[in-house]
Design a protein around this nucleic acid. Sequence first.
DNA 1: AGCATTACCCGCACGC
DNA 2: TGCGTGCGGGTAATGC
Length: 290
Amino acid sequence: MPELPEVETIVRALQNGGRGSPPLIGRVLQGAELRWQRSLAAPQPDAFLEKIRLQPVKAVARRGKFILIHLNQATLLIHLRMSGDLRLEPATDETGSPVPPAAHDRVIFHFTDGWRLAFNDPRKFGRVWLADDPQAVLNGLGPEPLDESLTAEEFHRRLSRFQRQLKPLLLDQSFIAGLGNIYTDEALHLAGLHPLTPSHLLSSEDAARLLNAIRTVLQEGIRRNGASIDWVYRGGSFQNHFRAYGRSGQPCPECGTPIARRIIGQRSTHFCPACQPLKVAPAGGNSSTS
DNA sequence: AGCATTACCCGCACGC
DNA sequence: TGCGTGCGGGTAATGC
């Protein structure tokens, strides 16, 4: 269920407590149960289990949509993909009897204090890595959208570098890290840009407006603890404030025109045909004759 | 050749 | 029951 704001919400809960759970920091790993082998991307199960044993959690962080759990010697990386979630909870109830795993718990980390971190993932798309150097897994990710060091000028240069449709480009994690289907549609609507606009046609003003829109929707998503949609409820409330996503046929909040929906880049895409007109390539230009 | 787009795949649950 | 859909992303094929 994660895009950047949902992952950030989970990370903050593991850092400071929240979402009904205490902090993760400081607990010491005892071991792990691999209930679905393919949820572990690397290394092999035996090496994985041996290396996490008695490792303390020193810090929790996020990069793009990845959750980073820094241990003493290595880093656990978790990607929730479409349906993953994490639960930190006691492994036993008040009477001391073990609490059975939930349906779809794929990996369960056990701590020496009797607590456990369950990686729950109905669709089995999520993955867990253990890496000496997290950069080896994260390599290829584009810039963090909320990082101030990404300037409007640099963003414009990056957009100009490709001739790609905005929607698939913003979904490409090597272009910018953390956006998914919801926040991309929301940002394009807020910026007034058609999802099919070729990226190199954006003016520097367009680019600045788009970067601001991306930051605005991500920050609002974080402020509302993410969005909770489909059957997986996580406590966020951003779904009650969507401008375009999931609102096909309903009035655009800006102009009242019905929101359109079409498939772009294999993903359902929602936009206002009036507020987000398609920018066209300048007429004239190349002649094909020799 | 090289980039951009499209097709397909991967489990599962839910609504119609 | 059957079918369409989905907060993601990798690989392969096709197109320009």
